[in-house]
Amino acid sequence: MKDTLRREIEKFAMVYHVEESGDTVRFYVQPIDFEGLKTFLENLTMDYDVKVQFKFGEFVIELKKHRERIWINLALLIATFASTTIMGAGMFERFDLVGGLTYSVAIMFVLGFHEMGHYIFARRWGMKTSLPYFIPFPSLIGTLGAVIRHRGRIPSRKALFDVGVSGPLFGIFASILVTYVGLKMKFEPTYKGEATLMLGTPPLFDLIAKLAGFNGYYIHPVAFAGWVGMFVTFLNLIPVGQLDGGHVLRAMIGERAEIVYRIIPMILIALGIVTNSSIWLFWGFITMFFAMQKHPKPMVDEPIDLKRYAVGILTFALGLSCFTPNPFVVTKG
């Protein structure tokens, strides 16, 4: 490994010293072609953990063969299943472990299906990506969602589009399915004199409720999991930076997307002020941070085809159908 890497690095830099410690190799170099070296190291990130340092006047490249630790994914999956089950069980009038399990399966199916969409299409494009990392958290939902990690450069705008759009589309499908099933499940609690969480329902949720023939007041926690999926889908499709919507927009309109990235946070902050909603104020400031980070440029930065443009427009339209101006309202009985 060391000799092969040295020969490749020497195409862009003079290597005057090499250190090897376990599975880590350090190359002390004098760069000749900075841009070529940068591109080479970016490509190496698919298979190596790359660290570049400039210390004591020396330019040091540290490479370590990347190894996936599947046990971390498994441990987080189990922990998230436990946290969502406990929080789900608490959604019933009496702590209901079986009910909590049904909610947990529903919410993890919705979130996991979203991430698997990214995973499948990333693999199809030959991109290195991890399995989903679920994030346990003792909140109302029981989790902060799930993420996957991509390694290496983005091959093209087509690849960027396919990977970016697949997660929301898979997530919307899962959310529709779970919402319909949940609205068909009987749930008639009696919350007398207690605080109740009222949900603002987006147009897509209302449509499914009509199709399911739902005319009740309370929804089953499984239907709530579907609602969460729609809410998360809308947030992911906000067209800014490293969010899915940011990836899709960058693939559709190229570097002009950076202009949109800077406008969206202002719109969200204005929405938060108009609706008196701290959620949109929070997301306004979060997306402002994302907008400061320039989107990575694909290796082949050529326009996508018309079919993908159509899918992109449809996806953003579906995302808007998941929007509600006031997601949460707490009322007292």
Rank of each mutant, 00 (worst) to 15 (best):
10 E>H: 09
12 F>Q: 11
14 M>D: 15
14 M>Y: 13
20 E>I: 12
23 D>F: 12
25 V>W: 05
25 V>I: 15
25 V>S: 11
27 F>E: 10
29 V>D: 10
29 V>A: 14
41 L>Y: 06
41 L>D: 07
46 M>L: 01
47 D>K: 15
48 Y>S: 09
53 Q>Y: 09
54 F>L: 08
57 G>D: 08
57 G>Q: 00
59 F>K: 07
61 I>G: 09
62 E>V: 10
65 K>S: 02
65 K>T: 10
74 L>A: 15
74 L>F: 14
75 A>T: 14
77 L>D: 02
78 I>F: 14
83 S>D: 00
84 T>R: 00
84 T>S: 03
84 T>C: 01
88 G>A: 10
91 M>P: 05
99 G>H: 13
100 G>A: 01
103 Y>C: 00
103 Y>E: 10
108 M>N: 14
109 F>R: 01
109 F>G: 05
111 L>D: 00
113 F>Y: 13
117 G>S: 09
119 Y>D: 08
120 I>V: 15
124 R>E: 13
126 G>D: 11
127 M>V: 08
128 K>A: 13
135 I>Q: 05
137 F>V: 06
138 P>H: 01
142 G>W: 08
147 V>I: 15
148 I>E: 02
149 R>V: 14
149 R>T: 13
151 R>V: 00
155 P>G: 04
156 S>L: 08
157 R>P: 02
160 L>Q: 13
160 L>A: 06
161 F>V: 10
163 V>Q: 07
164 G>H: 02
167 G>F: 03
168 P>K: 07
169 L>D: 08
170 F>E: 04
172 I>L: 14
175 S>N: 04
181 V>F: 13
183 L>R: 07
191 Y>Q: 07
192 K>C: 01
200 G>K: 07
204 L>F: 01
209 A>M: 04
210 K>L: 07
217 Y>P: 03
222 V>H: 09
223 A>Y: 12
225 A>T: 05
226 G>D: 12
229 G>W: 07
229 G>C: 11
230 M>Q: 05
232 V>K: 01
234 F>Q: 06
234 F>H: 06
239 P>M: 04
241 G>C: 00
245 G>P: 04
252 M>A: 13
252 M>G: 09
259 I>R: 13
261 Y>P: 03
263 I>T: 05
264 I>G: 01
265 P>C: 07
267 I>F: 13
268 L>R: 06
270 A>S: 13
271 L>S: 14
273 I>G: 04
286 I>W: 06
290 F>D: 03
291 A>E: 11
295 H>Y: 15
299 M>W: 11
300 V>E: 15
302 E>G: 04
303 P>N: 09
307 K>Y: 06
308 R>A: 09
309 Y>D: 09
311 V>I: 15
313 I>C: 01
314 L>D: 02
326 N>F: 12
327 P>V: 04
327 P>D: 03
330 V>F: 15
331 T>G: 06
